[in-house]
């Protein structure tokens, strides 16, 4: 598959079409957001295997569960925010029966910048992570999607939540060479003063923060934690031991998200001083994603400043 320079949702839409050729049992289910999620591209190519259930997210999930229980390979795709109203269906049907349903949440984080707090999903990782049997994957950019989605759809059985944004998708990982494996973290930049763990488009800020930190003489290791659950305990422990400080950065609430997942590992494996960067309240409307990152203190300079604060607090 050729890597296209498009938005995350476009990348998912195109990839699903390619996978539909290969997998005769692949079924796409959406809830009146076929156009917005780009699921409709699959529908044009494979109308018999594309189901738009209407504005019915609870039914969307159980309908997909029914297809899976009878032997199909469904992907339920809708806005991350509104999939969460079907949390209980995801928990009680998909999770409890351990069904092979892939759930793709689009427009996650701040990516739906204009629609504001009702649409900006900043709690979905926390909600999905608590469900037994459920895996959670957060790709950082289009390159990460091309690495991971085909493997997830073809080779990984069982429930999995896949979180992507709408349009804002800076190139982040194109120049890095790694293959996706569920449960594996990727060290994008090695370092020894602090480990910064992140995933999603916000990883772009982290890489830029690391450049600023290097100018100040701080060598930061950057870890792309694409697979939040299962989580790569080994890599996290190695880098906690090596660096002694860990900062997490996420386009999500600090309560229950990526930062919490990392802290849960380190508190039992090798506790080190940590700082969790993310949100602690609702989003709001803005003209673009960058305005929101700035407003919530999640740009590269803000991340760099937080790292310095953490290091000085304990070195004093």
């Amino acid at each position: 598959m050729e890597l296209a320079d498009v938005s995350m949702r476009d990348a998912v839409g195109r990839l699903l079409c390619e996978l539909g050729d290969e997998l005769g049992d692949l079924v796409i289910v959406t809830a009146d957001v076929g156009k917005a999620t780009r699921a409709y591209l699959f529908g044009i190519k494979f109308p018999g295997r594309y189901f738009n259930v209407g504005i019915s997210e609870q039914h969307l999930i159980d309908f997909a569960a029914g297809i899976a229980v009878a032997g199909g390979r469904p992907i339920a795709i809708a806005f991350a925010m509104f999939l969460m109203r079907a949390w209980e269906q995801i928990r009680n049907a998909v999770g409890r029966m351990n069904l092979n349903v892939k759930i793709v949440g689009t427009h996650a984080g701040f990516s739906d910048h204009a629609d504001g707090s009702s649409h900006q999903s900043l709690e979905d990782i926390a909600l999905m992570r608590t469900i037994p049997n459920m895996s959670v994957v957060v790709p950082s950019d289009v390159a990460d999607i091309y690495r991971s989605l085909p493997i997830i759809v073809k080779d990984i059985k069982g429930p999995l939540y896949y979180r992507i944004g709408r349009d804002y998708s800076p190139r982040i990982t194109n120049d890095y060479d790694y293959e996706f494996k569920l449960g594996k973290a990727y060290v994008l930049e090695d370092g020894y003063d602090v480990a910064i763990v992140s995933s999603g488009p916000i990883l772009y800020e982290v890489l830029n923060a690391a450049k600023e930190l290097r100018k100040l003489g701080v060598n930061a290791a950057i870890i792309n934690l694409m697979s939040i659950k299962p989580i790569d305990e080994v890599t996290l422990e190695i880098y906690a031991r090596k660096c002694g400080y860990v900062v997490t950065v996420e386009e999500h609430s600090i309560y229950g998200g990526l930062g919490s997942a990392v802290a849960e590992v380190l508190v039992t494996k090798y506790p080190v001083p940590m700082k969790l960067l993310g949100t602690s309240t609702y989003g709001r409307s803005a003209k673009n994603v960058r305005d929101l990152l700035n407003y919530y203190g999640l740009t590269a300079p803000a991340v760099a400043k937080s790292v310095i604060e953490l290091l000085t607090m304990y070195r004093r």
């Binding site: 029914g66 297809i67 229980v69 009878a70 199909g72 469904p74 029966m97």
Partner: peptide, 25 residues
């Protein structure tokens, strides 16, 4: 037992999914 239930209102949606897949195939 074909389908785990217990939370009301979900069985029919699951059944619609199963019936759809059977017809499709």
């Amino acid at each position: 037992v074909d389908v785990s239930t217990g939370s009301l209102g979900q069985g029919l949606s699951i059944g619609v999914g199963i019936a759809t897949w059977i017809k499709l195939r």
